[in-house]
Design a binder for these strands. Structure first.
Length: 815
RNA sequence: GCCCGGGUGGCGAAAUCGGCAGACGCAAAGGACUUAAAAUCCUUUGGGAGGCAACUCCCGUGUGGGUUCAAGUCCCACCCCGGGCACCA
């Protein structure tokens, strides 16, 4: 009889067909099993499933299948982030309506995900481009508005000329738009809507401690730096008019060394202090800075010819305007202490402003102004600081701050780098901000029963300038909900990061029409046990969604402080040196590979290529090996299903094969429980199969039965179609992913004897066999008497012998 | 400049707690089967030297030092690659 051959073209469609209608697992809240919520980050429907996607999804999918087989109640939902720029750009390019384009792609993506056999819970599917999702975005916005967490004001904001819209600070990278790497972001002053994420700065920072266990360290560090908390002191320097200039400093201990005050060019006092001659130069400075990449601004300053008094020593200091002082941080004004701050040093040397050292190293001398080549920025001991002289920096800061508070010219203060989240976008495609501008009543929120405020269907998307909604009269003209007179509807739409900030809650109750979700259903699943996504969202999505969770908690909707206990950041798939993505136009479609080798092979290959957290340069050499491997397993299982002839009864081969089997179960299980290095899991299964090929003819039917069953179960999370087919051929009922995960038996897995490595002076010279647990002395003796070792030791002095039980003997000799 | 990662065969990689470096796979070479090819199965494969041979020896994890009986793994200095932050007072 000819051997059965592995044919993915027969197997995959067959099971694909049977799984069509939600045959994959579906989680219910009333289940008595332990729960596990695994979630991959919301994908854009880009039309093609590329190999980068496959790699990301197989990680979560393998985990979900494993957890399910372990008896967990697993929620693994799927959704679509269909908003914003990709949709709008594609619409412009294809001359199609964004929503239509998006929905058609979602259908295609769903088809592809089904084809790959991903185990998503489709009953909880959601798309953030549906009107119901708008409704709850708007509902959240209005709740925040009521609590003062949403506000509108004019501010300097980031403007991307390519997107023709405003961007949040988090969405600017290297001075460029996060989606248009080469387009420099401009600064514009516009009226914008903001969410007050700064109100949660302290909590967002403090609760990072809860995440230290389960989140990658670098994400936590990035968030900590982004929030940028610094403790310091605010001090009022006074003009001769008595008007204060408040500065913020973290080094108040250096204040006796302050030799000038520098204001940001946008500082409100500048306008008052500047003379007619300098005014245009300040304006030029502002304009120049807006255009420039903040990275390479050359420090420049303008003296205002005015003075302010240092409250600690009564000294009058000249006031300057400096282009390197940021209006958006601290108070927008600094005291310059050139002797103890590098930037101030550079500035003051350039303009010949006095440099006055007042801090010396704990065991050193005060620097000399004339010979100083660089600022001394470390803490030290105060000198020439009046009553504070002789104090160490930390103590001086405490006492000086106390003095400022006691005498009313300053206070201890905490400043954050984090700024409020600008959510206004001048785009058509996004959730409309549900407010109306009324000449009589001002800004009036839309009443809840008028939600959702929907986008008008027919809008000419220009892709430039202001929101396209401004030209749609039916949308803009609306009566004021409060007084009924003619008013204007807000035309800004929300940042699409709003959508992604809470979608994972909606998944748990995706069809709720009364509320964004039911708190009870949510509390069962939350927090998410395992969240999977790219590191590129470390300070975008991952900080916004933490913020939303805290707001929801304060609204009484959820009880968890954090959305996800564990976060896994998978590596990027690189192609020709760039991240593989639709916007880079370098995607490799997974279709051709799937067509040729099958989706199982594509999945297995994606997992085998490298551990999942590692970036991977995409090369498809090697894919055939994985296809071969599946065929190898397939033939092995099918030809041994009904074997009758036995090898030597209960022979050595059985013991060997079962030992390898149970060792493999342990290795794969351990990998799932800890670090998900599926490449080594798969390698372990390959080793098992290689060994089975060697022992095949000597195995008893009993041993073979156990081996085949468990081998197929081990393959389940990695190659679901092939495993399912084999499972059926083994005569089993019920899908593989509903079977219990095999348990490893430590007795069967144990090696009969330990192999002990014998080293002489640290170099491998031989091996000996000994039972596990053999005494040190015995091992030492056995090693010394070994035929290979004996001549090497003869005539030399054995200095000492190191014995690591069950592992190694190292004989140190001399002479 | 500062803060994280990383550097191991021709290639992707493994070595999880300081204890056999290169598992597993690709590629390559040889062999079996075959009229032939494909497919499959088996063998070899870090570099170098020696031996008829089973085999033996030396070198080897970016570079240079160090700790240790023992270092890919720990410490110090440096080089290179990737990522993040970058006038945050």
């Amino acid at each position: 009889m000819p051997e059965q051959q592995y044919d993915h073209k027969r197997i995959e469609p067959k099971w694909h067909e049977r799984w069509q209608d939600g045959a994959l697992f579906r989680a219910e809240e009333d289940d008595t099993r332990p729960k596990y919520y695994v979630l991959e980050m919301l994908p854009y429907p880009s039309g093609t499933l590329h190999v980068g996607h496959i790699r990301n999804y197989t990680i979560g999918d393998a985990l979900a299948r494993y957890k399910w087989m372990r008896g967990f109640n697993v929620l693994h939902p799927m959704g679509w982030d269909a908003f914003g720029l990709p949709a709008e750009n594609a619409a412009l390019a294809n001359n199609r309506h964004p929503r239509e384009w998006t929905l058609s792609n979602i259908e295609e993506m769903k088809r592809q995900h089904r084809r790959y056999g991903f185990s998503y819970d489709w009953s909880r599917e959601l798309s953030t481009c549906e009107p119901e999702y708008y409704r709850w975005n708007q509902w959240f916005f209005l709740r925040m508005l009521e609590r003062g967490l949403a506000y509108r004001r004019e501010a300097l904001v980031n403007w991307c000329p390519a997107c023709a819209t405003v961007l949040a600070n988090e969405q600017v990278k290297d001075g460029c738009c996060w989606r248009h790497g080469n387009t420099a972001v401009e600064q514009r002053s516009l009226e914008q809507w903001f969410l007050k994420i700064t109100a949660y700065a302290e909590q967002l920072l403090a609760d990072l401690r809860q995440l230290e266990e389960g989140w990658p360290e670098r994400v936590i560090t990035m968030q900590r730096n982004w929030i940028g908390r610094s403790e310091g002191t605010e001090v009022d320097f006074r003009l001769e008019t008595g008007e204060p200039i408040r500065v913020f400093t973290t080094r108040v201990d250096t204040i006796f060394g302050a030799t000038c005050i520098i204001l940001a060019p946008e500082h409100p006092l500048v306008e008052k202090l500047v003379d007619g001659e300098t005014r245009p130069r300040v304006k030029a400075m502002i304009d120049a800075r807006r255009r420039q990449d903040p990275g390479d601004v050359v420090k420049e300053g303008l003296p205002l010819g005015r003075f302010a008094v240092n409250p600690y020593n009564g000294e009058a200091l000249p006031i300057w305007v400096g282009n390197f002082v940021l209006m958006g941080y601290g108070t927008g004004a600094i005291m310059a202490v050139p002797a103890h701050d590098e930037r101030d040093f550079e500035f003051c040397r350039k303009y010949d402003i006095t440099v006055r050292p007042v801090i010396r190293p704990v065991d050193g001398e005060l620097a000399d102004e004339a010979t100083m080549k660089m600022a001394f920025v470390d803490d030290g001991v105060c000198e020439n600081c009046g009553e504070f002289s002789g104090l160490e920096s930390a103590e001086a800061r405490r006492r000086m701050t106390a003095k400022a508070e006691a005498e009313g010219f300053g206070k201890g203060a905490v400043t954050y780098r984090l700024k409020d989240w600008g959510i206004s976008r001048q785009r058509y495609w996004g959730t409309p901000i549900p407010v109306v501008h009324c000449a009589e009543c001002g800004v009036v929120p839309a009443p809840d029963d008028q939600l959702p405020v929907l986008l008008p269907p027919d809008v000419a998307i220009t892709g430039k300038g202001r929101s396209p909604l401004e030209n749609v009269r039916e949308f803009v003209e609306t009566p004021c909900p409060r007084c009924g007179t003619a008013a204007r509807r807000e035309t800004d739409t929300m940042d699409t990061f709003i959508d992604s900030s809470w979608y994972f809650y909606r998944y748990c109750d995706a069809h709720n029409a009364q509320a964004p979700f039911d708190s009870k259903r949510i509390s069962y699943w939350f927090p998410i046990d395992q969240y999977i996504g790219g590191v590129e969202h470390a300070i975008l999505h991952l900080i916004y969604s933490r913020f939303f969770t805290k707001v929801m908690r304060d609204l009484g909707l959820v009880t968890n402080d954090e959305p996800a206990t564990r976060l896994f950041t998978q590596g990027m798939v690189i192609k020709d040196g760039a991240k593989m993505s639709k916007s880079m136009n370098n995607v490799v479609s997974a279709d051709s590979m799937a067509e040729r080798y099958g989706t199982d092979t594509a999945r297995l290959f994606a997992l085998f290529a490298a551990p999942p957290e590692k970036d991977l340069e995409w090369l498809d050499s090697g894919v055939e090996g994985l296809h071969r491997f599946i065929g190898r397993v397939y033939r092995f299982v099918t030809r041994n299903i009904s074997r009758t002839g036995s090898g030597q009864a209960a022979g050595e081969a059985d013991a060997k094969a079962l030992r390898k089997l149970h060792q493999t179960i342990k290795r794969v299980t351990d990998d799932f429980e800890t670090r998900w290095h599926f490449n080594t899991s798969i390698a372990a299964i390959m080793e098992l199969v290689n060994e089975l090929y060697l022992l095949e003819n000597d195995l008893t039917p009993e041993a073979m039965t156990e081996i085949l069953d468990k081998l197929v179960l081990l393959l389940g999370p990695f190659v679901p179609y092939a495993a399912e087919e084999l499972w059926e051929q083994l005569g089993k009922t019920g899908p593989v992913f509903k079977q219990a995960w095999p348990e490893h038996d430590p007795e069967l897995a144990r090696e009969p004897e330990a192999e002990i490595v014998v080293q002489v002076n640290g170099k491998l010279r031989g091996r000996i066999q000994a039972p596990f647990g053999t005494a040190r002395e015995t091992l030492e003796q056995q090693a010394l008497e070994d035929e290979k070792i004996k001549p090497m030791v003869a005539g030399r002095t054995v200095v000492k012998v190191i014995v690591v039980p069950d592992k190694l003997v190292n004989i140190v000799i001399r002479g």
